[in-house]
């Protein structure tokens, strides 16, 4: 668990440029440094839930950022407060990004599954069947097959 007051850095990672993903960490915070305000609880990973995959439970934090540096505009003192899941946060010591914080195994290893009404249990691993495009445009590839170019 990351204690309140800890300085953290949001991973400067852009999975959406590489593959089909669902991400709840806004683009404007990637690579930014903030401060943990508090641990909000533990929740199943939306990045998995979005694809109906078994989802590990992750710690969620409220992280506070100075607002003006985000776009180099705004009023000094203003802030942005955002919910961020632990895997997106890196501990920062002396201004240098460190390894990701170790996870609490007892919490993170718990796997939750959504219950299906009339859906076979093994359908959780099934995303959109390969090669099937329902939008009539190359915007909905098979999540399991990897490459996805942003529209």
């Amino acid at each position: 668990m990351i204690p309140p007051g800890t300085t953290v850095r949001v991973r400067d990672d852009w999975p959406e440029t590489r593959e089909k993903v669902h991400i709840r960490t806004p683009h404007y915070l990637r690579g930014r440094t903030g401060r943990v305000l508090r641990h909000l609880g533990n929740f199943p990973n939306p990045e998995d839930l979005a694809f109906a995959r078994p989802a590990r439970t992750l710690p969620l934090y409220h992280v506070l950022f100075d607002q003006p540096p985000l776009w180099e505009e705004g009023s000094p003192g203003d802030e942005v407060l955002v919910e961020i899941y632990e895997p997106w946060l890196m501990l920062e010591r002396d201004g240098i990004a460190d390894a990701p914080p170790s996870r609490s195994r007892s919490l993170s290893d718990r796997v939750i599954q959504t219950s299906g009404a009339g859906v076979p249990a093994n359908s959780f691993a099934v995303g959109v069947p390969s090669g099937q495009v329902r939008w009539g445009a190359p915007g909905f590839p098979d999540p399991a097959s990897g490459h996805h170019a942003l529209p």
């Binding site: 669902h22 939306p46 839930l49 979005a50 694809f51 109906a52 299906g116 915007g139």
Partner: peptide
């Protein structure tokens, strides 16, 4: 439990 709000969002974002 037929579909999560996360799946709804994924579909919208797609």
């Amino acid at each position: 439990g037929v579909m999560t709000v996360d799946e709804l969002r994924r579909g919208i974002e797609s």
